[in-house]
Structure formats: C-alpha cells, structure tokens
Design a protein around this nucleic acid. Structure first.
Lengths: 339, 339
DNA sequence: TTGAAAGCGGTACCAA
DNA sequence: TTGGTACCGCTTTCAA
C-alpha cells in the first residue's frame, strides 16, 4: 500500500495534535473556525482521505457488504442484480465485495470466508446448490441474505420471486389466446424455481380444466440445448402442442430455433413463452413473450435488508417476495385450430 | 456488525494473554504444543475468525483490490473480465470490491473514492470516458490500472487489446475468402478502439491494393440499431459490399438482422464479421465469425499487475497488450461474383 | 479551545 | 515458554 497521509501527517504540518485535526476535519463544535480553515486547507493540499478501515475498527462498524454469485453474465441475471446492488449500496456509502464462484462449492465457501474475515457486515449470496450449510458455517455470525433460484423459502433472510405465480401468469396469457394444449418445457428437477413453476402451471391448467403436459430434458447448465431437445422430443412424439412455455428465456431461444429448423413458424404454428426477460431487446426479431422478474428491485431490496441488518440488527423484515410480470411480445399469438 | 469473538475472548477463556493466543493460532515456535492445542480447540468451538482488517491495519497491508466498470452485462464484456478477476484475486487471498457506475461520472468517481477510503491496494478501472483526470484525482496515491475501450495507451498502468491487429485479421480473413469490396461498419468516432480498428483496417486494405470503405452510424450506446442503420444506408446507396466487418458483435447482429429483412442471405450474399466474441454459442444459428478478445487473460493480467503493485511497488511491467484471435464460424464465406 | 489517554483487534519486539 | 508494551489510524471521553 502506498504511504497515504494520515491525521498525524497533518498534525505535524499544522503544529497540532492528531486529535485536534480529526475534530477539525469533522467540524467539531469545539475547534476554532481559524484552525478548521487551516487544517482543511492542508488536508486538501496533501490529498488526505480518512482511513475508513481504522475508523470502522474503532467504531465497531463496517462500510462493506459482500455478494457471492455462481457467475457473472453467462446467461444468469446476476449482472443485472449486481448493477442495482452496487448503486443502492453506494447511495448508503457502502462498498460491495463481489465474488464469483464459477459454480464451485469450494470457491463459494472461500469467498464467504474471506469476506467475513474482511469484516463485511452482511452477505448476499446466490448459492450454487440448495444445500447452504457450508455457506452458513463459513459465515458464522455474519448474516446471510439468500437470493436466486436455489434458495429455500425457509432461509432466515431471503429475497425471492414468486415462481408459482409465473405458472399462473403463463397459463393465463396462453389460455387467453385460446390455447388449450400447452406444454411446459423444463430442465432437470433439482432446481427449486422449476418445481414452483411446475406447481403453478399444473394448478392453473387444472383450474381451467386443461391437461398440463410437462416435458423435462437436459439441465440448466445448457438450457439452449435443453430447449432444442425438448422440441425434438415433442415433434418426434407427433403430438406438438399449440403453445410452449419454457422455464427460461434461453431455453425458449433454443426451442424457437429448433421449431424453425423444422419449418414451423412462431407464433404462427406454435406460440412460445420464456421466463426471466434477460434478453429483452438484445436480439432483433426475437421479440420473446416472457415473464419479467424484477432484478433491479430484487437487488435493491437485498441491499436494504443487508444495511438494515447491519444497522438495527434484529428488527427487520427478513423476507421479501417479488412478483413476475407478463411481457407480451411477438412469440405468442392466437391458437390455431388443427384439423 | 455482529459481536464476533476476538483474541481477547479466547484469551479469557484459556486464561492466557491475547498475545499468547495470537501466537498459538499462528503456530509460533515459542508456544508449547499443549497450549496450542488448547487454544485452537477453543477457537474452533467458538468459531473464531481473525479480523483481517485489524491485522492489515497493523501490518500496513491490504487484502482488497477495487474494480470500477461502467456496467456489468448489458452487452459489455466486463462480466467476463470480472469472473476471472474474482478467481485470480481469490487465489492470492484478495477480495475484490466492485462498483458499477451506470456510465455516470459522478458515480464512477464516488466508487473510486469510497474504495480508496476503504484501503484497496490498487484499482482496476474501465473508465466511462477517455478523460480520466477525475478518476486519478479521486484515487490519489492508490495506483490505478486502466482497462477497456476508453483507455489511452499512455496511461501509466494499463491492460490493452491490440485493435489495430483486429483490423488486420479481419481483412486477412475476408480477403482470403476472395472479398475485395469490404466495408467497415463503425459507430461514433470518440471511441479509441474504433479509431484503432479503422486504422488497422485501412492499412490492411491498402496493403492489398483494396479500397477501404468505412460507414459510421449511430453510437456505442445502441450498437444494435447502429448495425441496422448501417446496412440500410449501404443498401439505399445501392452499392452493397460483398463483406461487412462490424466494430462489435452486437452491431453485427443488428446488421445481419437488417440484411435478412431485405432478403439477403448471410453469408450467401454478404459475409459479416463482428468483434469481441461476446455471444459465442449464446444464440443458435447466429454462428458469428468474429474476433475474440481474450477477456479472461485480460482480467488475470490486471489482477497480477494490481498485486505486483501492492507487493513490490515500483518494479512491475506497467502495461500489457493482448492480441485478438480470429474465430471463424458461419457468417462468412467465399465472395460471390456479382454480374 | 485544545490535547492526553484509552481503546478497536490485531502483530512485533523484548523482557521476564 | 510466556506476556507486557507499543503501535497501526482513528474517535470518544475527559481533563487542562
């Protein structure tokens, strides 16, 4: 570290004690205006910045929160969430330590440990797996706020999305367009969000007297391929639905691509919906109808909760659930009657 | 902050001084094996973790580096760079403070100030604009490593890409396929990378006795639209080239979409190349031929430089330039002779 | 109005 | 082998 000027540096230059300097810089009432002027001028000239680490050490405070995610970008939404986390934290004078675990449990744990050692006041974690016992152990007394698809609803602090409602909204939209034969294309079952989407989908279909069909293929790690495989499966079976709801946008993109390869048009022949709204406007002509999860709001809420925990400890609202919203674009349309 | 156990806590429980405990935990040679055992057991039981902040304060060290970017995701590559920065730093026991400025100069400066106050040993900054004087002022004595498209080559510490070479590689590839009429589609001129790409492109074309054509439209903020506009312009002029090199992948995606709308096939009628390789494999059927910039290597190098600066101060290699690599996919093909 | 002393959680040095 | 003392940079309390 470079030798930055300290209170002592200024004190020597001004012929004062470091205490007087500290007070002067913070506009304490018991320092004369003249001294304050002089001290501030020197501080300015030598480019003094207070050492927040030392201040926090004495005051038993912290000005950092941690965040650990499986990966930034790479078809996750953590980049979007982070952008908001970063600004919300900055507004409150907090820095954010971010760690990307590359979906490795070891690295995830290590990031948590390092951040706790570096005195973050709270951690926002999007865990790699649903078993978060290692994370909790690594964080000890530092509170952990869970976000993301692996989070169990019973975690003490959590920011969640209502994926059951996603199912309801998807069915509502598609059924409203006259679709009766709707398939939910999902990937591997370990994911909690998928379970919830399935549950919501099934319930909404049954409420309308429709038969819920679910096709599970591939896994989250390669959702694009999973989407393509799902379509191949349906077409091979010879019973394609009139509408397809995919568990993620990326999957929907794969599904659409497979459909087109088979000469089917979207939404002419088959309507397709996605989930997450990660690519709104990213790709021309895609215009995917999807369910938007409010990533920015989610990030903001996580920071608010983190800072509340740091500042008032107990009295906080420990969990918050956000609702998805329907974003209608060009990949869904009226059901066509097949003869 | 939660009341975490300290050396003193253990000392009281073990009936020792906090100094002895500190030594025992660090396996100092002058503590008896029995005491070490006892101390470590207690530490384990109460979940003691050393306060790195206090340790660093005394040792005049730091275990954090800062990174400030205009945005994560959003068609930038900073998410990819960060993933590598995060792991490279973790390997060396460093945490990374990350700030997203949302392309605001105020926020950018603020992030820098906060991180410097929080004692990061060095900052990796992808600046919003080429005028980095405010950043440097905010960082004071803390070294700043610049990365990203706005970085001037004369900055003291910088990790760069050789975008001139991009131009050479693009022309080499396209000319090799028989193209003689090649257009470079670029956006607003303030961007340094664009200037370099243009320079490399012009030189490579002229070396082959070809006439470099450059079309500038739109700006980086909406590269997709810029790509579409560029194509419209070319088609309106009635002199479309046989190959198109776009200054960014996102622009290429826009260009391809516009071409298809006009009934032109890629690469059948026109070959299209991009730059950056942000979307390799993201979208099916896109298969964009592009120039890969080695984001992971770049992030790794930035961290190595940061830690070298923190540890040995002066004696470091202050700059490093990475080379782009050609990634041939499906959007380029042999030139077709027009009659 | 100013500053001396104490303490935050650690580590280095030296005396017991 | 152990522990006292001093110190990192800062703030609070209290005495001068």
């Amino acid at each position: 570290m470079p030798n930055r000027p300290t209170l002592k540096t200024i004190a020597q230059m001004a012929g004062l004690s470091h205490v007087a300097v500290s007070k002067a810089l913070r506009d304490a009432p018991d320092i004369s205006a003249a001294t304050k002027e002089r001290v501030k001028k020197i501080a300015d000239e030598i480019g003094y910045t207070p050492n927040l680490v030392a201040r926090n050490l004495y005051l038993q405070r912290t000005s950092a929160i941690g965040m650990v995610v499986p990966a930034m970008g790479d078809n996750t939404a953590y980049d979007l969430i982070f952008n908001e986390v970063s600004t919300a934290a900055a507004e409150r004078e907090f820095c954010v330590m971010l760690g990307s675990s590359h979906r490795s449990l070891e690295l995830e744990e290590r990031h948590c440990r390092m951040m706790v050692g570096n005195q973050v006041g709270a951690l926002i974690v999007a865990p790699c797996t649903s078993d978060v016992s290692r994370i909790k152990a690594a964080c000890g007394a530092t509170p952990v706020i869970f976000i993301g698809s692996k989070t169990a609803p019973e975690e003490q602090y959590a920011i969640l999305c209502d994926y059951r409602r996603s199912g309801a909204l998807a069915v509502e939209h598609l059924a409203g367009l006259g679709h009766r034969d709707i398939v939910l294309l999902a990937y591997g079952p370990e994911n909690r969000t998928v379970q919830l989407k399935v549950a919501g989908f099934v319930q909404a279909m049954e409420e309308r007297g429709l038969i819920p069909r679910i096709v599970r293929t591939g896994d989250a790690a390669d959702a694009l391929r999973a989407g393509m495989e799902g379509v191949e499966l349906l077409l091979a079976e010879g019973t394609p639905p009139t509408a397809l709801w995919c568990a993620s946008d990326y999957m929907a993109v794969g599904a659409i691509s497979a459909l087109k390869r088979h000469g089917l048009s979207v939404p002419g022949d088959i309507s397709v919906m996605g989930h997450d709204d990660l690519y709104s406007g990213h790709y021309p002509g895609t215009g995917l109808t999807t369910l938007r999860t409010p990533m920015a709001e989610l990030g903001h809420a996580a920071v608010e909760l983190a800072i509340a925990l740091i500042e008032h400890g107990g009295e906080v609202q420990p969990r918050q659930v956000f609702q998805p919203a329907l974003a209608v674009r060009d990949s869904t349309g009226p059901a066509v009657r097949r003869v």
